[in-house]
C-alpha cells in the first residue's frame, strides 16, 4: 500500500507541480494568474489521445505537435485575455477574461472531442506494477522541465530577460527590452509546460474535457503554498500535495481526502496569504 501511495502520490504531485509552474511562468511576465493553466493540462491529454490514438501518429511526432499546439493556445490567451486588460490590473479584470478563455477552451473541447473520458495510450510501454510508466513519466517530465527552466533562467540571456521583466517591468522597458514579445514568449512556454503535464500524466488523468477545473485548483495549491513565482516552492508543494492527497485517499477514503486538502489549503492561505516563502505587500497610499 505504501508503495502504491508513493507511486500515485508522486505522479499526481508532479502533475500538480507542473501546472503550478505553468501558473508561475505566466505570472512572471504579466502579473496575471490565469485560469487557463488547468485547461492547458487538460489539452495535453486530449491532444495526446487525439494524435496518437485517433490519428495513429508516433510519440516523437505527437509530443512536439501537442506542445506546439498548446503553446499556440498560450499565445492566443495572451492576445485575447491578458493584453487587453493589463492596463487595468487594479480591477482584476484578468480573473474574468482568463476565466472566460478557460471556459471557451473547455467547452470547445467538449463539443469537438466529446464529454466522455477517452483513453490515453501507453507511451513507452515500460514498467509494470508500481513501476508502471504512468507513475514515473510525470516525475520525469517535471524533472526535465525544472532542469530546462533552471538552465534557461540561469544560463541564457533570454532567461535573464524573463527574470528582468518579472522583477521590474518598468525598468526592463526603460532598458529597451522587448517586454511585449517576452510576455508572448512566456505564454507560449507556459502552454507547452501545461500540456506536458497533461501529456505525461495522460495515463492517469485520461483525455477528459472536465479535467481543467480540477487541475486549476490542485495546481494552484502548490503555487499558494510555495509563493507566487517560486518554481521550486511549486515543486515541493506539488509533491507534498500529491502524497498527502493519496495518503488521505487510502486512509480516510477518496471523498473526504478532498475535504482534507481543501481545509488545509484554506488554513494555510489564511495563516500565510503570501505563501510559505512569499513576498511582502506593497504600499497602498
Amino acid at each position: 500500500m505504501l508503495a502504491s501511495i508513493l507511486a500515485t502520490g508522486l505522479a499526481m504531485g508532479a502533475v500538480y507541480a507542473l501546472i503550478g509552474i505553468t501558473y508561475n511562468t505566466m505570472f512572471a511576465t504579466s502579473r496575471v494568474m490565469s485560469f487557463t493553466a488547468g485547461q492547458l493540462g487538460m489539452l495535453g491529454g486530449v491532444f495526446g489521445s487525439l494524435l496518437m490514438l485517433r490519428w495513429g501518429l508516433p510519440l516523437v511526432v505527437a509530443l512536439p505537435l501537442t506542445l506546439l499546439a498548446a503553446a499556440l493556445v498560450g499565445v492566443v490567451t495572451e492576445f485575447v485575455a491578458v493584453r487587453p486588460v493589463l492596463r487595468s490590473l487594479e480591477q482584476h479584470l484578468y480573473v474574468l477574461t482568463t476565466l472566460a478563455v478557460a471556459l471557451i477552451i473547455q467547452q470547445t473541447t467538449a463539443i469537438e472531442w466529446g464529454t466522455e473520458p477517452a483513453p490515453f495510450p501507453r507511451l513507452l510501454g515500460l514498467g509494470e506494477g508500481v513501476w508502471h510508466e504512468k507513475y514515473w513519466l510525470p516525475v520525469v517530465a517535471c524533472a526535465i522541465t525544472i532542469g530546462g527552466l533552471e538552465y534557461l533562467y540561469r544560463r541564457t540571456l533570454l532567461g535573464h530577460a524573463f527574470i528582468a521583466v518579472a522583477e521590474d517591468n518598468y525598468a526592463a522597458r526603460a532598458l529597451g527590452l522587448p517586454e511585449r514579445n517576452l510576455r508572448i514568449g512566456s505564454y507560449a512556454l507556459a502552454g507547452a509546460i501545461g500540456a506536458l503535464a497533461g501529456f505525461a500524466g495522460g495515463q492517469l488523468l485520461l483525455a477528459f474535457f472536465a479535467n481543467g477545473p480540477l487541475l486549476n485548483f490542485y495546481g494552484f495549491i502548490p503555487v499558494a503554498l510555495g509563493g507566487l513565482g517560486n518554481n521550486r516552492g511549486a515543486v515541493i508543494g506539488g509533491l507534498a500535495l500529491g502524497l498527502f492527497q493519496q495518503a488521505a485517499n487510502f486512509t480516510v477514503g477518496g471523498i473526504f481526502s478532498s475535504v482534507a486538502v481543501f481545509t488545509l489549503f484554506i488554513i494555510v492561505l489564511l495563516a500565510a496569504p503570501q505563501g510559505l516563502f512569499g513576498a511582502t505587500a506593497s504600499r497602498r497610499v
Binding site: M33, H92, V95, L99, P213, L214, N216, F217, F220, A224, I255, S258, V259, F262, F265, I266, L269, L270, P273
Partner: peptide, 26 residues
C-alpha cells in the same frame, strides 16, 4: 477569506468550496 485573500485566491477558494460540497453530498 475575502477579508485576507486577493481576488484570484478568493475566487479559487470559492471554486474549491463548490467542489467540496458536491463531493460531500455524494
Amino acid at each position: 477569506p475575502a477579508l485576507r485573500l486577493r481576488t484570484f485566491y478568493f475566487a479559487m477558494t470559492t471554486l474549491g468550496f463548490a467542489t467540496i460540497v458536491t463531493q460531500v453530498a455524494l
